[in-house]
Design a protein around this nucleic acid. Structure first.
Lengths: 243, 243, 243, 243
DNA sequence: GATGAATGAGTGTTCATTCAT
DNA sequence: GATGAATGAACACTCATTCAT
């Protein structure tokens, strides 16, 4: 990814490019360190990751890690911060306002599910934070603000659905977010142990497809008023088969 | 830490008394080590936990850990094995056969939810295993057998419910187990980060009560045939309020 | 520390203003560095002082330290040289020739005592040099010349006192200088340990007053011929009380 | 000192002896570390000394330094503590009670002077402590007690001399101790810089002999009542010549 | 079975110094 | 003259593990 070693016919250009890349480009150096560090921390945890190993996989040296991030914890916290920021920015890019409430809810759950699947390193980082009682996350002020947006978006959606007589009136956006997250997060976080203990059928393409659809269905049945739920039952149930 | 910085006279009498107190009781010594080790691994992860610290909190010495468990990984694997065994044994003690399918399902979900809440160290151990791609769990043959029982129990229950015309016919016990686990596991595993980002309302007594009830409801609505679901809608919905 | 952990926008205006404030004034820049370096070396020793920390407390940058002084040792030696020069210049400004020998001697001892008290950083620098076996001092040719003046001044004074029949004939100016220095130097150099072990009574205003007077008395009794010493005994003794 | 390498005809015995010396002898291992560390700290200061270098000069390994002393500061503090203890114990072994006050005072000053000369590493350690504002010394409770004994001994002596009409009545034992210490300490501590600046005449055998005698004389003239001082003046003065 | 002593390979971190602009 | 970026060698310290008794 973005590596340069010997993939063009003219070697000299590659050398020049690499030289320019490596030297005097603080942003890229930091980004490169963070990318490597994210993978290492996600794979081995905070105390399991080794600064030496991170440095080795980097285009720069161990010294620069300390130059830019102070110490191991500083590096970890920056990695955590960037990971959250990236994920939240993608979430905020979701445009739900112009969709019908039901469609918007389907899109939200589907996106959340898929987004977790496509960011396993972020999931693992969050697991690590949970093992550490979120004490590092608690120190990142910049993150706290980002998350309210997600709840507010959901609240807007609930209100719209309720006003149209489609959603129940007693919905709690926070709990809804919790429920959507539980499915999406667990799906990625516990894949290794679940597969090991019960086989990986649910983690094959077809299994994931059903899992995803059932999550959407469960959330929909939860938010919809019974009468609306009935109208859609065939449609919803149809996707639950194992075909 | 088993290290000496400074020195002091040795209380000979104390040593004799202590020796007599625990004279040659291998099982208790091992159980004591495992209890301490579980807490340490759960709190700090595999590489974060320190043999010295575990030994210090033990009634015995560091040498005994190596004597009984070989090395750090051996200790961790034994801890993991015991934790799984204990949890699964409790699950298997659930008597569901004499209950109506719906009641049995409610009891199963409620028990799973509560059981996770009351075994946070186990949850954390599973998180750690997931970070390590379940590679240690994979080496424990004794565990693999235990889990099929859980699925089989659930399968029996589904079949009974379906035969009575209450449950849908296309239920997949494995997926059902996944769904129940997702709620129950996430509830404990992600409490630190979720509370930090969104406040701890859902982790206050009242919040937990609602969360638990909604999980039961969601599972029920998922397994019940629509016509049965409708019959119960008032009852189910009633518990969703925030009172 | 010249290192970056985190980043922030750069206040361009501030930089321009500051640049104009100290536009090209090498002497002041060097003097500023030396002042800061003296304090740092005196406080933490040669190996204990940090170039980064010195640079940070300076109005200029780390690079300038290397530009002007070559390396850490060069900076230290320059600091040492300047400190000696400043102290010796003050000593040489003492006008003793127009005073009676006894008065001149009193003034010399009193001045030396006070001068040490008011230059604690210099004292500490000399202590550091002594720990390093004076190997840096030995490389500063400029300093060697300065000190003979002090001994010559003292020799002149001794000769005058002896010629007038007040001082003993066998006085050795070098030893006299040693004795005066011993009191004056030890008073400052060993204050921390002495106070810690024996209380700080002697380092309170009254204690210092007595200490100073007793030093003067001891030197006087040493240089004066016994018959002169007797004449002054009441006067001298009177100042030894603890009032 | 106590080394074994190849100084006996039978090599095998040496090997056995060395083996027994190196293995399982905690006291000797610690003593060996402390001896080496004292020399290193005295030569290079707290931050200048290197744990690696200390370990290398030791019969054991770097790891054992941390095993017994925790960290660098712990090692330094233990070195400091042992150095003070050793020096104070020698001082307390002085038997002054059976001597005439004047003889006792002469013996005390002479001993103090010589004792400092023969413990240069201790002196350097004290200098280092003074540069560090005695902050490590302040943490050693065991040392504080030892020093009162020295002052009390001196107080007893002063009282005896005063009672016999030989010493002045207004003597302050603490100040007397300060004065004796000033000479004795400065003589060792400032030898490098003093020799460098003024030549080493005073540090040649003859110079030291005079210096020592003059210190005794100055202290005696200070404590003796003038009439007694006069009686002894010839005797005292006689030793001040440069022969 | 049980204990304190001992160890080597690593692990995070810091230092004075130099480079590119 | 002046600045932020970059560096390698060293540094203090820790780890799981084994030895001798």
């Amino acid at each position: 990814m973005g590596e340069i070693h010997g993939k063009g016919p003219i070697a000299l250009e590659g050398i020049i490019a690499e030289t320019q890349l490596r030297k005097r480009n603080p942003e890229k150096v930091q980004a490169n360190i963070l990318k490597v560090a994210l993978a290492e921390f996600a794979a081995k945890g905070l105390s399991g990751a080794r600064i030496d190993e991170i440095a080795e996989k980097t285009k720069t040296s161990k010294r620069m890690i300390y130059y830019y991030f102070g110490d191991k914890l500083g590096l970890y916290q920056t990695v955590l911060e960037e990971a959250y920021r990236e994920v939240r920015e993608a979430e905020n890019a979701l445009e739900l306002d112009h969709l019908q409430p039901v469609d918007a809810m389907v899109k939200l759950v589907a996106f959340t599910f898929d987004h977790h699947v496509s960011h396993p390193d972020f999931i693992r980082l969050v697991m690590i934070e949970n093992i550490h009682q979120a004490e590092n996350l608690a120190q990142l002020e910049s993150i706290q603000k980002l998350n309210n947006a997600a709840i507010e978006e959901l609240e807007k959606l609930c209100r719209r659905g309720t006003k149209l007589g489609q959603f129940r009136e007693d919905l709690d956006p926070l709990m809804l977010h919790w429920q959507i997250s539980a499915f999406s997060f667990f799906n990625v976080s516990n894949q290794p142990t679940f597969s090991n203990l019960f086989g990986d059928a649910l983690y094959q393409p077809n299994g994931q497809k059903q899992l995803r659809q059932n999550c959407i269905n469960m959330i929909l049945r939860f938010v919809l008023l019974p009468e609306n739920s009935n109208e859609q039952k065939n449609e919803l149930g149809a996707e639950n088969d194992k075909s």
